[in-house]
Design a protein around this nucleic acid. Structure first.
Lengths: 231, 231
DNA sequence: CCGGCCGGTGACAATATTGTGACAGCCCCG
DNA sequence: CGGGGCTGTCACAATATTGTCACCGGCCGG
């Protein structure tokens, strides 16, 4: 699975080494020598993964990570931090800023590749582009459109992803942590109850046509999308 | 609720990632790269929880678990098994060994944290996602649904767990203390008679279709789920 | 036939969990 | 630089679930 990977590393030699390895593995590599350039590249086109050096001239890697996490659009891009330090405290700080994983220099190409695969594998397992329709409710990922009983429905990006996930995994309860992992991303830190709020917004958007009944609450467990009426 | 957690994992990278995440959550982490070291650490000081990789060099995770379970002093320390997806079919074997829960790799930090919290609260985990059907009564953990003779049945969380346990351990008498351990969790302090109340609620929910007869009272001993009519 | 157990029930008050409305921060688009 | 659209969090309201009791009624051994 070829991926677009952004490498933000100020030491040209190391950057070249990493890039060569990644390209040999079939990935497309974007390069940045500093955080500012990295940020610009991310805004131009979202990569599938970012390798980010901890220490950078100017804006540090941590600052960049924090900044990316603060923005809704870039929030879900996985980040692997590269660092020379190996102190636990730094790792904790790195994870707090939202890094998905952490690789300490020096590292072997094989290890890096393994980490990259692990992170890529963990995110969005099977997002299909095929439209799905259940009980008159239709969602089309390709055109990013939703209609309920013929009527178009307007949803925000998060509610769209939430509905899409639920519709492609119906007849099964999803706990709040699971929904956060699958819809928000596993490195995003938000309150569990945020799920409730979005479920509510989704329901009120579907209320007009009565399709809100498809989203059922399972007390003590989570939520479920089901064509069958709640028991 | 900071806890002392022992992580037995042979891959240093994964161990570090887990440890960092746990520390961020405020836990104290003890590390072991192999089962022997883990065993030594446990003997020095009992942790509150053990995260144990299934595959380890030398003594395997399952051997260590068995060994801990055999020892009086270490028997009650909760264990969460870490397994790769390919070993997933072994999960039943793992639970039989006495693991309190299992988590398949790759896992998200949030998911792991959720499992850890559940185990530390000593909540009895549900062991299987497979639906069970007996005499027209069907329970499906994945969708969290129950139907009796085609009719949907509404149950509270506790009654659901109770029914699930009974249906997966049928044709056997369970005493009230046993049911409390298995369904409520082993540290919970509740009146024994509470079981009676929930049995009653379960029965009245199944009464409409006559499936309440499947839950039999064994005077002086406890309750039994049986497809055969009471003797 | 008579207590003494044991399980069945209905009612309750305490809790736990989920639904809602309001709000402040952010980003993007004029 | 102002407005609108989204988001994540709260505090609070609305419900659902739970654990206990007290009270009954049946079964059993004496």
């Amino acid at each position: 699975m070829p991926a677009h990977i952004l490498v933000v590393e100020d030491e040209p030699a190391i950057q070249a080494l990493i890039a060569a390895n990644l390209e040999r593995a079939g990935h497309v590599v974007l390069r940045a020598l500093d955080a500012e350039t990295g940020l610009r590249l991310v805004n131009e086109a979202l990569p599938d993964l970012i390798l980010l050096d901890w220490m950078l001239p100017g804006m540090s890697g941590i600052d960049l990570a924090r900044r990316l996490r603060a923005n809704e659009r870039t929030r879900s891009v996985p980040i692997i931090m590269l660092t020379a330090r190996s102190e636990e405290q730094d790792k904790v700080r790195g994870l707090e800023t939202g890094a998905d994983d952490y690789v300490t220099k020096p590292f072997s190409p094989r290890e890096l590749q393994a980490r990259i695969n692990a992170v890529l594998r963990r995110r969005a397992p099977q997002m299909t582009e095929d439209p799905v329709e259940v009980g008159g409710l239709r969602i089309d990922p390709a055109s990013h459109r939703v209609s309920a009983g013929g009527q178009p429905v307007n949803l925000g990006p998060t509610e769209f992803r939430l509905l899409h996930f639920l519709m492609t995994h119906r007849e099964r309860v999803h706990s709040r942590p699971q929904l956060l992992d699958q819809v928000w991303g596993d490195h995003v830190f938000v309150e569990e109850r945020t799920v409730d709020v979005h479920i509510r917004r989704l329901r009120s958007a579907l209320e007009a046509t009565g399709h809100d009944a498809l989203i059922q609450t399972v007390r003590g467990s989570g939520y479920r999308f089901s064509a069958m009426p709640a028991a």
